[in-house]
Every structure is written in structure tokens, then in C-alpha cells.
Design a protein around this nucleic acid. Structure first.
Lengths: 214, 214
DNA sequence: AGTTGGCGTTGAGCGAGGTCAACGCGGCAA
DNA sequence: TTGCCGCGTTGACCTCGCTCAACGCCAACT
């Protein structure tokens, strides 16, 4: 549990950590809340999102086990976070974490790298939202999910989606209906298989990659 | 020139800096290039963007004097950068900058904050691209430009746009025509004034802010 | 077994924004 | 002065993705 920041420091972390659990749909924190905590996901999935007044939602990212949450280093959270599935999170007080951090500059460096990875992902997503068609967006999303599954050691080109069609729609800047129709279209073209609604197989990764353009 | 990283260290920086100049439209670096340099803008404006194979472009941000460029901390640049106007940049070798950085942990901390600011801006832009209408996007963009102009000490609610309609379109995920039409519509509604094509006045900031939604 | 409610799919019609084309304007070179 | 050429604007038309609505499926109750 509490998948590593750094080896050999687990004991120090253990002293300041609290374990918290969330049910599907439960709020971890809301945009604008004071941000006294940082979380690490030990089990389950989390969605990050921003809302407009009238309820329109943009999901800015999905978090997986091992990912950090709330590292934004400001007084308040810049987005809301909700559990997608049952989730176990390790919670740290930022103030206490800061103390550890000043002792260990390389950790700060690691944090900086993580922020930059997130930034690169955000820019890729901006390209998706601003300039890709519905089909290209869905294909890009599926390739992204596939890569993540591959990193987690899933050998063949098939994986489960942790999120609903509604979440995918709000992540890709589309409607539920368009996402559903696009899944169907990709299946009919033979680019993907859908054994169940939440499982995707990709017979020819290169072919699907081609459908993502750029 | 070379608007500050930190006071009292200017001398150390002076020894490793090179001044480089760019003409409008000139490339600073391309996505995928090896990234040996970091830049700081002392004069002029720069656009950052990503391209798809077929030429579709998404501008991920505009940089102003004082901003850093290429801090992404990886072997290659994640996006392309071009000068919008005549621009003077201060160029540093990352390797040499790293040496200074390890001596001064607080600078790394500052860099981390800057990365997080960029990340927050990117997430705001994702909301814009994924969920806002053309009018809301243009209004959001203009409010953003106004805030920046205000930070630079421009007192009244009017400012100059450093970028073309084409750049604005590629930043907002729209076409040139839609941007142009939306400017006209905002003008006809009295939400903005357009003394020249590249100057914008905002008689009632709150009214324009209302048009950005969220 | 029947009911309910959440989720995903499908269809029909519509509209915001894209495409294509024409035109105006200002700067610049000859 | 003339003739570009790049940029911005405007109009007419079209299309991709949205809206609205119906329906099917499955799991959880009663």
C-alpha cells in the first residue's frame, strides 16, 4: 500500500499518513476548498474535473493507483476530485510533508518532473480538444488507456475501462451519445472489439493509432 | 534585460547567458528537438503550439516578456515555439543552469510553483476548449489578456493584442472566421470596443466576465 | 415475477461553427 | 500611381456533433 515516494523513507511517511476510503461518486475535495492534504491513491480510480456555473463539466484527468492528488502547491485546490470506483487513499498533511521535503531535495526534483509530465499530458489533451474530430479523440483516448494498461503489465491488447461513457464524454469534450456512436463505429470498422461495455480489445494497435492522426 | 530569476544572482547568470534575437514568425525550436537550452524572454512575444500531421495546429500558450521557455525538464521539447513579434531572448544551457539550481534549492521550489501555475492555466484552457461556446471562449481569452495587461501596469481597460486572428483561432480551437465574427458580435453588443484590429477596449469588465460563464 | 432506476445505444432533426468564396483595406515595392 | 499581398471581415451554404426522445439491458429491490 501507499505505492512509493522513495524507498527507505516509508517509515517516516508511515508516521504522518492517514488512510481514507471512498465509495463510487464520492467527493475527495472540491475546487476552491482549502488544500491542507495531499493524497496518494493505493486502490481505485479518481476523476479530476472543473465545472461551469450551469453544470457543464470538463474532466481534466483520471488518476490510477500510485498517482498523487492535490500536489498543486497552492492554498486551494484548482479542481474537484471524485472517486470513480471504491478507492483507498493515503492522506498526508502538506505541512508535514513539506518538512520531509526540505530534508530531501531530490524528492522535490521528482515532484517537479511529475508536474511536468502532467503539463505535457495537459497540452496533448488541449490538442485533442481543440483540433481533433470525435473519432480521433476517442481513438487517442483508447490508445492512452491501452498504454496505461500496458504499463501495469497487461500483456495483450485488451483492457477494462474504469470510467463510464459519461466520464469519457466529459473528458473528450463530447456528449455521451457521440461517444457511444463512435465506439460503435470503431467496432464496425474492426478497429476495436467490445467484449463487454467496459472492456476494449484492440486487434491492430497500429491501425487504431493511425485513426488518432498527429 | 533578462528579467529576474532571483536578485543577487544576476552576476552568476550573466556568465552563462547568450542573447539571441528572433524576427516575427521565426522558429525558436520545434517539438521533438533536443532541448539543451532554456530561454527567458526579455522583449517580444512567443507562441507555443503542437501540430497534427495534416497541419492542424493547437496553440497551447502565449509567452510575454519575463516568461521562461523550455523548462520542461526532459530531453526533447514537448511543443514548438515561434516568435510572434520581434523578440529578444536570453538563452541558458540547461546543464549550466542545473549547477546553479543544485546550489539553490529555493529556486527549484520557485520553478515548481511556475510549473503548477502553467498546469492550472492548462486545465482552465481544457475547460474552455472542451465545454465553452465560441463566444465564451473569446470572452475568456479577452479577460485573460486584460488581466495580463493589468499586471503590466496598463491602467484602464484597454490593451493591444500581440497575436493575429489566426493565432487566437488556433489557441481557442476555432477558425479565423468564427473569431472574427465573434469579435464583431461582441462589439455590436457593446461588450468590447475595437479602436483598431489589434486594440481592444472593455467598457464594462464585469459584463464581459459574465459572458465567459463558469 | 414484476418493478424500478441507472447506464448505454440508437434514431431523427437541428444548430453552432466550419468551409468556401468574395471583398475591403493598408503597407510596400517599383 | 499602380499593382500586389497579407490580413481581416462578411456572406452563403454545409456538416459534424448536439439535442431530444425512445428503447434495451441488467442489477437491485419487493
Amino acid at each position: 500500500m501507499c505505492s512509493a515516494i522513495d524507498t527507505g523513507r516509508i517509515d517516516a511517511l508511515d508516521r504522518i499518513v492517514t488512510h481514507v476510503q471512498f465509495r463510487p461518486g464520492q467527493t475527495v475535495f472540491d475546487e476552491g476548498d482549502l488544500a491542507p492534504y495531499v493524497y496518494n491513491i493505493s486502490r481505485g480510480h479518481v476523476r479530476l474535473f472543473k465545472l461551469l456555473q450551469d453544470g457543464r463539466r470538463q474532466i481534466t484527468g483520471f488518476l490510477n493507483p500510485g498517482d498523487f492528488l492535490g500536489l498543486a502547491a497552492r492554498k486551494t485546490y484548482a479542481y474537484s476530485a471524485e472517486a470513480i470506483s471504491d478507492a483507498d487513499l493515503c492522506r498526508f498533511k502538506v505541512t508535514e510533508l513539506e518538512e520531509l521535503l526540505t530534508e530531501m531535495p531530490p524528492v522535490r526534483e521528482r515532484l517537479y518532473e511529475m508536474a511536468n509530465d502532467e503539463l505535457a499530458a495537459a497540452q496533448e489533451q488541449m490538442l485533442c480538444l481543440g483540433r481533433k474530430t470525435a473519432k480521433e479523440r476517442v481513438a487517442s483516448f483508447l490508445i492512452g488507456q491501452l498504454r496505461h494498461a500496458a504499463d501495469c503489465g497487461a500483456g495483450d491488447a485488451a483492457f477494462d475501462l474504469a470510467m463510464s461513457r459519461s466520464d469519457i464524454a466529459d473528458y473528450l469534450g463530447l456528449t455521451i451519445e457521440t461517444v457511444s456512436r463512435t465506439f460503435t463505429a470503431l467496432r464496425e470498422e474492426g478497429l476495436i472489439g467490445l467484449p463487454t461495455t467496459h472492456r476494449v480489445s484492440i486487434p491492430d494497435v497500429a491501425a487504431l493509432e493511425f485513426a488518432t492522426e498527429g
